[in-house]
């Protein structure tokens, strides 16, 4: 649904060049919620703004719903009619909501329809339908200043949906909200994704956002995508930073001559009593340093950090046993050990 190839964005100011995007290849499938996560300055904001060409990429292409937007953009700095038309079919929600303070909630939602040239009666019918969809029917005549942050973002979402978009871009939509409101907004996005078959591309710096609604995720660092895939794929990737961040388990080795191992269970293996089997079979004492079980992207996932007595060389056989059980094993080397 959204594909970028070799997307590059270089900012030039006062002779200095800053590469915000460095050849980003992104592929978002139709109907999925795709999260791009990274620290501030990683380039995720540039990425999402390049998708609807609010930001002109220096190189590379962007294709949304089969249309090559970079080809529509033309050479000049201003957006031509075709690009504007394509944009009106891509909804966008913003971190700071960006509602017009001089307009009522309903008029804000009608704004994209005015731009599309929809007639007055049709506009107000549609706006009220959308406000109903986001649960704000009673606020139609209020001004944005009278709403809470969560309500403003609901208006922002209703407005983004006014042009019947196939794709919704969410630029840190929940970053200015408290945890409770964040959950309700994410739930709304998830519902819209399911009900309307909306493809959602969101960027965030909060791992919880990815954890709670994303089907797929990508990790950005210094303008590049360093890891990407469906949540299941990521968890199955040994040494995946994203998987570790999505599913953090804590705990340090309690002393020298210990081997620390992260065990990830998913699917069937999460129901097997492997740890006690391991203990009985090899007659070793196992300490559990940390453990968590959760649902990520609709998958039941468990992760456990265990400590085995003895160095890694002494534990090759038990670790092999764990691998045989179909578990994903990451051995954490002690600091200084190589």
């Amino acid at each position: 649904m959204i594909t970028t190839t070799g997307l590059t964005k270089v900012y030039r100011s006062r002779g200095r060049e800053v590469t915000a995007l460095d050849g980003v290849d992104l592929h978002v499938r139709e109907g999925e919620v795709y999260g791009v996560i990274g620290q501030s300055g990683a380039g995720k904001s540039s990425l999402i703004r390049c998708v609807n060409l609010l930001e002109r990429p220096t190189a590379g292409t962007v294709t949304v719903a089969g249309r090559d937007l970079t080809a529509l953009a033309g050479r000049g700095p201003r957006a031509g009619r075709e690009l504007r038309q394509a944009r009106s079919r891509i909804g966008m929600v913003f971190q700071h909501f960006n509602l017009l303070s001089s307009r009522t909630v309903q008029d804000n939602v009608e704004l994209p329809l005015e731009i599309l040239g929809v007639s007055g009666r049709e506009r107000s019918r549609k706006a009220l339908d959308l406000l109903d969809l986001v649960g704000l029917t009673d606020k139609a005549k209020s001004y944005p200043a009278q709403l809470s942050g969560g309500q403003k973002q609901r208006v922002g979402i209703a407005r983004a949906l006014a042009g019947d978009p196939k794709v919704l871009l969410s630029d840190e939509a929940t970053s200015a909200l408290d945890p409770e409101t964040t959950r309700s907004i994410l739930q709304l996005l998830r519902d819209l994704n399911r009900q309307l078959g909306l493809t959602v591309l969101l960027i965030t710096h909060e791992m919880d956002v990815v954890k709670s609604i994303c089907d797929s995720a990508a990790l950005m660092e210094r303008g590049r995508i360093v890891e990407s895939g469906t949540v299941g794929e990521l968890l199955a990737t040994p040494g995946s930073e994203l998987a570790a961040a999505l599913f953090p388990v804590g705990g340090e080795a309690t002393g020298e001559d210990r081997t620390v191992v992260d065990v990830t269970f998913h699917g069937e293996s999460s129901t097997q009593p492997v740890i006690s089997q391991l203990s009985r079979t090899y007659n070793i004492d196992i300490s559990i340093l940390g453990a968590a079980i959760d649902t990520v992207g609709g998958l039941q996932i468990g992760r456990m950090r265990i400590e085995l007595p003895g160095r890694y060389e002494d534990n090759v056989v038990p670790i092999g046993f764990l691998r045989e059980q179909g578990l994903q094993i990451d051995v954490l080397l002690a600091e200084g050990a190589e």
Partner: peptide
């Protein structure tokens, strides 16, 4: 005027006059 508002209208497909 907050630049974000301008961006929002651009993202809806609005032109400069809009």
């Amino acid at each position: 005027v907050d630049g974000g508002l301008v961006e929002a209208v651009q993202s809806m497909g609005g032109n400069t006059w809009t």
